[in-house]
Amino acid sequence: MAEIKIAAESRTEFGKGAARRIRRADKVPAVLYGSGIDPTHITLPGHDLALALKNSNALLSIEVDGDSHLAIPKQVQRDPLKGFIEHADLLIVKKGQKVTVDIRVHLEGDAAPDALVVTENSTISVEAEATHIPESVEVSIEGLEVGSQIHAGDLQLPAGATLAIPEDWLIVNIVAAPTAEEVEAELEEAEAEAGIEHDEPEAEAEGDAGEAKPAEGEGNADEGESESE
């Protein structure tokens, strides 16, 4: 993975007020720590950091006060509504150093017809060199039948990476796809638990609503004629 260079500034102001001022300037408060170095409080350009962190395991080259540090994102806090980065913890690493990171599980292919693919774990923890962190692990589900399972120990990890989780961890489970009747029954059950009630359709009016009935006292026009005529 290529290094992403970001110019940082030392931070001397702390607290919520200082953090708000930093964010208003489109910057992000952060902490740089690890490798026996005292934690360094810095600010990073918000746009550059957001681009770099599109890959959660990005390798960053942080330039601050004339020094350069290799670092990986350890914890990133985002605004729950707007999604912008509020704060970042960056772990300093050295070339050749092993780190434990989470990488994505990427599924390839299609399972057998009438099979439903359930991803039990969308990421796995692996140990890899800090400068050679894989982005993802590819998993083929092509043609898998109902009842098939893929565990962590079945994965073909990228070169240099080793599992940091038990081999029996379930990653993918292939189950029977539900029938339309089962889906409808589950929906009705969920609606009942939520207290959702549907209005009953109105009963059709008896008789033909479009047919006019004679008013009481009205008879056939011929019945009103005088017999004397």
Rank of each mutant, 00 (worst) to 15 (best):
M1K: 08
I4H: 07
K5V: 14
I6E: 10
A7K: 15
E9L: 12
G17I: 01
A18G: 04
R21F: 08
R21M: 10
R24H: 06
K27E: 15
A30Y: 00
V31S: 03
L32F: 05
S35Q: 15
D38P: 02
D38A: 13
L44W: 08
L44D: 08
N57D: 00
L59G: 04
V64Q: 06
V64R: 04
D65Y: 04
L70V: 02
Q75Y: 10
Q75D: 14
L81C: 06
H87M: 08
A88R: 11
D89C: 12
K94E: 15
T100H: 07
I103F: 05
R104C: 00
H106F: 03
L107H: 00
G109L: 06
A111D: 04
T119P: 04
V126P: 06
V126K: 04
E127T: 15
A130H: 05
T131K: 00
V139M: 00
E142V: 05
G143F: 04
L144Y: 07
S148Q: 09
I150G: 01
D154F: 05
Q156L: 13
L157Y: 00
L157H: 02
A159D: 14
G160C: 03
A161L: 07
A161M: 07
L163P: 11
E167Y: 06
L170Q: 11
L170W: 04
A177C: 01
A177F: 05
A180V: 12
E184H: 02
E188L: 12
A192S: 11
A194V: 04
G195S: 10
H198Y: 10
P201A: 05
A203W: 00
A205Q: 07
E206M: 02
G207T: 04
A212T: 11
E227F: 11
S228H: 10
E229A: 07
